[in-house]
Amino acid sequence: MEKIIIKGRPAMGGIVEAPALVFPDSLAGNSGSLQDKTGIIMEKGNPNRGLSIKGSILVLPCAKGSNGFSAHFKAAKISGVCPAGWVITKVDSRLGVAVASLDVPAVADFEEVDPVQVIKTGDWVKIDGDTGLVEITRNPL
C-alpha cells in the first residue's frame, strides 16, 4: 500500500489514526454550517454537506466565516461528536481556538506541501501531534 509522509509543526500533542475528511474550501463558522448537536455539515455548497465530523481527521487549509467557528466544534464535542484530529495547512486564530478547545492531536503550518492537495477524503491518516509527522495511506477504493 502506498504511504506518503509529510511534515508540519506539532500543534497539539498525541498520536491518532483515522480516515480523512478533506475541506478544500474550509468550512464556514457561521451558525448552522456545522450542526451543534450532531456534528453534521450543513453549509450550502460544501462538498462534505450531510457528512459528520465524528471520528475523522479533518484536513483544512484554514478557517472561514464567523468568529463562532470553534464554538460549533466545541458544542459537537460536548454532544459526543468529536473529530479524531486535525491537519491544517496554515493555522489561523479561528482554527487555533478550535484545536485548543477540542484537545485532540493536530499538525499545522506545512511549508513544503499543502495537505489539502495531498490528502483525499477517505485516505487513512496517522498524525503525530508531538513530532508533526503525518502518514497518509491511500484509500484503495
Binding site: N67, G68, F69, S70, S93, G96, A100, S101
Partner: peptide, 9 residues
Amino acid sequence: GNSDGIEAA
C-alpha cells in the same frame, strides 16, 4: 486583534 473564537475571547 485576531478572530479568536468564543472560548478564547
